[in-house]
Amino acid sequence: MSQLNIVATLKIKSENHAAFQTLFKKLVEASRKEAGCIRYELNQSIDDPDVYIVIETWASKQAIDLHNHTPHFIEFAAFAKEHCEKLEICILKPVL
C-alpha cells in the first residue's frame, strides 16, 4: 500500500492546555523521528484555541501501526482519551 495521511481533530478541555502542550511537544518531536514518518504537523485553530488538528503523512499502513505502538503515542492517546471533549481520526489515501 502507498503512503497514507491522517487528520486527527482534537478539542481539548481548556483546563488541560499546559498538560497538552507538554505532551504535544513530545509526541510531535518523537513522531517526526520515526522511520515511516513523512510529515507530522500540529495546528491550532485560530477561531477556537481548544481545537488542534494533527496532519500526518506516513509511508505505509505498517508505519502507522508501528507508530501506534510507540511509547510516546500510547502516552498521548491515553491522556487524550480522558481529557478531550472531542477526538476524531480520519485515515486517508491520496487519489491524485
Rank of each mutant, 00 (worst) to 15 (best):
K86N: 12
H72Q: 03
C37H: 07
Q21S: 11
N68T: 02
E56G: 00
A59P: 01
E88Q: 14
Y52T: 01
K13T: 09
A78F: 04
L27M: 07
F79E: 05
K26W: 02
H83Y: 10
Y40F: 15
C84L: 03
L10E: 01
L66I: 06
N16L: 09
E41F: 09
D50E: 13
H72I: 01
Q21I: 07
I64D: 01
E75I: 07
I6V: 13
L92V: 11
F76G: 03
K25D: 13
K25Q: 14
E88G: 08
C37V: 00
I74F: 05
S14P: 15
Q62R: 11
E82R: 13
E41Y: 11
E88L: 13
A77S: 10
K11C: 00
I53P: 02
E56F: 06
K86R: 13
V51C: 08
Q44T: 08
H67A: 04
R39K: 15
A19T: 09
K26L: 09
E15S: 10
K25E: 13
L96K: 14
E88P: 01
K25H: 14
R39G: 04
L23V: 03
F24G: 01
P49K: 14
I38R: 03
L96A: 12
D65E: 13
L10G: 01
N43W: 02
T57I: 06
A77F: 08
H17G: 02
E85V: 10
K93S: 14
K11E: 13
S60M: 02
K13D: 11
W58M: 03
R39H: 13
I55F: 14
S45T: 05
V7Y: 04
I12S: 05
H17R: 15
I55T: 12
H69S: 10
A80V: 04
Q62V: 12
L92M: 14
A8Y: 03
L42C: 03
A63K: 05
R32D: 00
T57Y: 05
H17V: 09
M1R: 15
T22C: 03
K86D: 11
K61W: 10
A77E: 09
K26P: 03
L42Q: 00
Q21V: 09
I64R: 05
S45L: 06
A63F: 05
P71D: 12
E15Y: 08
I53M: 14
K81E: 11
K93V: 11
Q3T: 10
F79V: 00
Q21M: 12
F20N: 07
S45N: 06
V54W: 08
D47G: 13
S31M: 04
H72D: 03
I64Y: 07
T57Q: 15
K81L: 08
D48M: 05
R39C: 08
